[in-house]
């Protein structure tokens, strides 16, 4: 049975088989779960549909979340004049859209977590729009992203409570970067550089949500991380390489996560949560109606 425990092994498998990472991961999941390949494809396609629906809803929805802290920013971005370019703008708007839907109790796909749910769809949907491509390419992109997430989860963590935000938004950006490279015709090796570059530059990112909510800074951070993933993909496609290989970056992320104090790992006992405004919001929201 096919298996991989590292990014290096995943890339080697793809190179041996002469297939993109997406197809290797699709086949791996089919074998692992003893299912039919078509059934696995359909399940991934149904998750894509949830992502597309969430992004579409978030781009027009202007409602605030229950806390009143977030809502309406995706709409703001999507309807303003862009100076940073349409693809970048769209990725940010999509990612914020999905995260706003999440904050507003809408339906999303955790990818890899609910807190980072906007990043992968944000980036890949913007690229699909740019390429004017069909859903098949997007389903493949999700398999690629899943393969990368799989290795990160197995060798490090994708939990903010365990590794800080680098483990959630960092992992999501890495997943998105590798997927975008493949959507644009890059090689498995370029995907591995893209994910290494993306993760490397989010190392140490802390999880310090105000009032414990998946809102501040999470929603806007999803927008930033989607753009970050595009930048990493663009660099890798241009031939820029990460000096530190992907697997070593993942290991570094894991060690940094272990060394981060608990106050910066989803406990809301440090960072932004403990700013004057953060404390004021926390107190306001904890009062009974």
């Amino acid at each position: 049975m096919m298996s991989f425990t590292s990014i290096a092994e995943l890339v080697a498998l793809a190179e041996e088989m002469g297939q993109p990472i997406a197809d290797v991961v699709w086949q791996w999941e089919t074998e692992r779960s003893a299912s039919q390949p078509e059934a696995i494809w359909r399940e991934m396609a149904s998750r894509l549909a949830v992502m597309q629906q969430a992004a579409a809803q978030g781009l027009i929805q202007r409602e605030k979340s229950f806390s009143g802290l977030v809502g309406g920013d995706a709409y703001r971005l999507a309807t303003t004049n862009s100076f940073i370019g349409p693809v970048v703008m769209r990725a940010a708007a999509n990612a914020i859209a999905v995260s706003e839907v999440n904050a507003n109790m809408g339906k999303i796909v955790a990818c890899p977590t609910a807190g980072s749910c906007g990043i992968v769809p944000g980036a890949i949907l913007a690229i699909a729009e740019h390429l004017q491509c069909g859903d098949d390419k997007l389903v493949r992109a999700l398999f690629t992203a899943a393969g990368i997430g799989e290795v990160i989860a197995a060798n490090a963590t994708v939990s903010g409570a365990v590794g800080g935000c680098q483990a959630e938004c960092g992992a999501a950006a890495a997943m998105a970067a590798a997927a975008v490279v493949e959507m644009l015709g890059g090689t498995p090796r370029q995907s591995s550089h893209a994910l290494a570059l993306a993760l490397k530059n989010l190392l140490g990112l802390v999880c310090d949500p105000v009032a414990g909510l998946v809102e501040v800074p999470c929603v806007k951070r999803n927008g930033f991380a989607a753009v970050h993933a595009l930048t990493a993909a663009q660099m890798a496609l241009a031939g820029v390489e990460s000096i530190i290989p992907a697997d070593e970056v993942i290991d570094a992320m894991n060690r940094i996560g272990a060394e981060l104090p608990c106050s910066l790992k989803e406990t809301s006992e440090g960072g932004l949560a403990k700013t004057a405004t953060g404390i004021e919001i926390t107190e306001r929201l904890s009062k009974p109606n």
Partner: peptide, 8 residues
């Protein structure tokens, strides 16, 4: 990893 589908 790409999942679960859930309400936020």
């Amino acid at each position: 990893i790409v999942g679960p589908v859930m309400i936020g």
